[in-house]
Computed example of a mutant assay.
Amino acid sequence: MITENTDDLIGYFVGCTSAYRNNELVTATSRVLDKLGVEFIVFPDEVCCGSVLFRTGLNDDALELVNHNITMIRELGIKTLVFSCAGCLSTFTKEYTKYAKGNLGFDLYHLTQFVPKIAKEKNLTIKYRKRTKDNPLVVTYHDPCHLARYCDIYDEPRELINMIEGLKLIEMKHNKKMAWCCGAGGGVRALYGEISTDIASNRLDETTACWEHINEDRLKEALETEAETLVSSCVFCKNNLSLASKEANSGLPVLDLSQILEESEFS
């Protein structure tokens, strides 16, 4: 829902990767915000959050982007800023907050935090359209480093998954603070592609072991499983794990949680 009235507007900070490489996540997030019934805007003058510049030591250049984005958001009167990109959120949480001396002037939420908050406030129920409560899509959740280790967001994504009728969450052995990295972070994907893929493949191997356990449970119930899914909430994790799944011919779908929500009904 895009509006020119800035009273109580939500700002959606898209991020470079979603804007230029993964438009499907921008579409999914926008549709989810619409389903929540909130008024939101995207920023025509949004520039890169500066994450890569900070990570490579180009702080002066990064701070120019920080100043631009903070000024833009404040001038529009935005008090709540929502992210679908975990990397952008971690940069705002760590670097932007430090630059603003702890007073950004607006609150930060990842989509996986914002959806449960609004759903509870509005007493909304969420149902995944493609499956049912009696025949749920069994998913396992991968904790992104940017969201988990950097922002200490572990429980909200799981709370959200458990709120969605038609989903069932089964944890991998290594989860939350012990979760393995997907291999995309820290420039590894860009500079050391083979190592990055190897790391992602190891994460997929753990996911496969999880499915074996699930299949045993399903067989006990004499139910045939359909294709199950690895879910995350970071565009970098989605891309790297999807690539590893494709290269390994695993047949395991990898989705961002926003895409699950896009295929869900809110009532």
Rank of each mutant, 00 (worst) to 15 (best):
5 N>E: 15
10 I>Y: 06
11 G>T: 11
11 G>R: 06
12 Y>T: 01
12 Y>N: 00
13 F>Y: 11
15 G>R: 02
19 A>I: 00
20 Y>H: 14
21 R>Y: 15
21 R>S: 10
23 N>L: 12
24 E>A: 13
25 L>G: 05
26 V>T: 07
29 T>V: 09
36 L>A: 09
36 L>P: 00
37 G>E: 13
39 E>T: 15
45 D>F: 06
49 C>I: 01
51 S>L: 14
52 V>P: 08
55 R>E: 10
55 R>S: 12
58 L>W: 12
65 L>N: 04
69 N>V: 01
69 N>G: 07
71 T>I: 13
73 I>W: 09
74 R>E: 12
77 G>E: 00
78 I>D: 01
79 K>G: 09
80 T>I: 12
84 S>Y: 12
90 S>V: 11
94 K>Q: 11
95 E>I: 02
95 E>F: 09
95 E>A: 09
98 K>E: 13
99 Y>T: 04
102 G>V: 06
103 N>R: 10
111 L>M: 06
112 T>F: 00
117 K>G: 01
118 I>V: 10
118 I>E: 13
119 A>T: 11
125 T>Y: 08
128 Y>S: 05
131 R>N: 15
134 D>G: 06
135 N>E: 13
139 V>S: 03
139 V>I: 14
139 V>T: 15
141 Y>L: 02
141 Y>E: 04
144 P>I: 02
144 P>E: 06
145 C>K: 01
148 A>D: 15
151 C>K: 02
154 Y>D: 15
156 E>L: 01
160 L>H: 07
168 K>N: 13
175 N>L: 10
176 K>F: 13
181 C>G: 03
184 A>K: 02
186 G>C: 04
187 G>C: 06
188 V>Q: 01
189 R>H: 10
190 A>G: 07
191 L>S: 10
191 L>I: 15
192 Y>A: 05
192 Y>S: 03
193 G>C: 02
193 G>P: 14
196 S>A: 12
198 D>C: 09
200 A>W: 08
203 R>F: 10
203 R>S: 10
204 L>H: 05
210 C>M: 15
210 C>P: 09
211 W>E: 02
215 N>G: 04
216 E>T: 14
216 E>A: 14
217 D>L: 08
217 D>K: 15
219 L>K: 07
220 K>F: 10
220 K>C: 14
221 E>P: 03
222 A>S: 14
224 E>Q: 11
225 T>P: 08
230 L>D: 02
230 L>T: 01
234 C>N: 06
234 C>H: 03
238 K>M: 13
238 K>D: 08
240 N>P: 11
241 L>F: 04
247 E>W: 07
250 S>P: 06
251 G>S: 05
252 L>I: 09
252 L>H: 04
254 V>M: 08
255 L>M: 14
255 L>P: 00
256 D>T: 02
256 D>Q: 05
258 S>L: 07
259 Q>S: 15
261 L>H: 00
263 E>F: 04
263 E>N: 07
266 F>H: 04
266 F>K: 02
